[in-house]
Design a protein around this nucleic acid. Sequence first.
DNA 1: CAATAATAATAGTATTACTATCAATAATCA
DNA 2: TGATTATTGATAGTAATACTATTATTATTG
Lengths: 225, 225
Amino acid sequence: MNNILSKVVFDVKESTYVKDPQTSELGNRILESSIDLINEIGFDSFTFRKLAQSIKSVEASIYRYFESKHKLLLYLTTWYWSFTEYRLEFTLANVEAPDDRLKRAIHLLTSEIEEGFSGLNIDVIKLSSIVIIESSKAYLTKDVDQENEAGIFLGYKHLVERVGEIVLEINPEFKYPNMLISTVIEGAHNQRFFAEHLPRLTNQVKGEDAICEFYQKMVFKTITK
Amino acid sequence: MNNILSKVVFDVKESTYVKDPQTSELGNRILESSIDLINEIGFDSFTFRKLAQSIKSVEASIYRYFESKHKLLLYLTTWYWSFTEYRLEFTLANVEAPDDRLKRAIHLLTSEIEEGFSGLNIDVIKLSSIVIIESSKAYLTKDVDQENEAGIFLGYKHLVERVGEIVLEINPEFKYPNMLISTVIEGAHNQRFFAEHLPRLTNQVKGEDAICEFYQKMVFKTITK
DNA sequence: CAATAATAATAGTATTACTATCAATAATCA
DNA sequence: TGATTATTGATAGTAATACTATTATTATTG
């Protein structure tokens, strides 16, 4: 499982920060508090000034870690994709049957994170809320090509391709594995948001996880010859 | 087809503007130029100052039409959904078989607009590019609940439900018609963006319209018992 | 103990997202 | 036609944002 924390993934994140926030106390406070604050007020209203106040520091100090709030969002999302791939490897370990592997992968990508992960300074439950609402803003910009060249989206692409490969194990002739998986990932985010804010756009019912069930069925029916 | 231009739809847009831009020359220039400008520089870099310069007017005059650039984006997207529903009615007219109806609807929702529409002051091809890149920013905000209550997203919801009903004609037991259709609409936007900027997230090939084909197959396989 | 690195404190700039005021012009209606 | 009213333009101004720069203070390490 060490290959997940390999140099490539690490490199991805490097281009999102000026100084690695995980290496200092202030840096870790920046991460923790930014996750809280973005959750509270939303990324659009989030500013480095407000963040500085909440950690009792100053703007200038935050800029030593991140060039801009956009870069911070990139950091958080790429961290999340790394983390998701890590969980994926765990979920797939020792599971041989491609059908089971895919089923587990789709479940991972579409269900809500409920358990916190101890030993992490990052609150993954809160972070996953941020990813649902804000992650598309990380790439829906005019800088996307430049940032893509810098390797920032490698983690996300890798995750999609990883699950896409399982699809191909089941049906090697299926022409659109990545399209299917990225549709599932982004779709599940959208549907969670819709369930909470625009319920007429979805069919999620409180209590049960229709989103998970829907995408499971959608994937398996779609890839079956 | 008049019901599409009914009071409800009109009301939706009312809450997005201060003064109806379609009723004056300046208003129309605002619409035309904002579409050009957002296409050129992206919504994030787009400001009313830049827009004012491009139409040789001043910021204050634009504020007489739209409260903020966010409201202008809401106007453009709701206009687009109205327009899409109008095209949908046309596409479905005199087509009886539910399968054909759904096929045509999905094609409309996932294919690229290629023909301009004469008689419109709004460039729908450019507008559809904006919708692909920027429309999710219209609802991924902290104001979404308030704006939803004001009826701003009625057009989008109506469109989703309209196509969802066709799904139910084909399979009345299908539990997730709206989830499926909103997945298709948002998915098709994402995939077009990915094809251009993050191609490893998709499987679109230059030339052919894999996106359209993929979602057609996905929909019909998913709803089949 | 000295050197170095990290942070805090303060200040400052350009841009953004507005609001307010008033003059100039165009449309309309009596 | 002339008076009224609505619309736009010109100008100014404010608070907030997104930074950059400088210098003092504190903590770390060699």
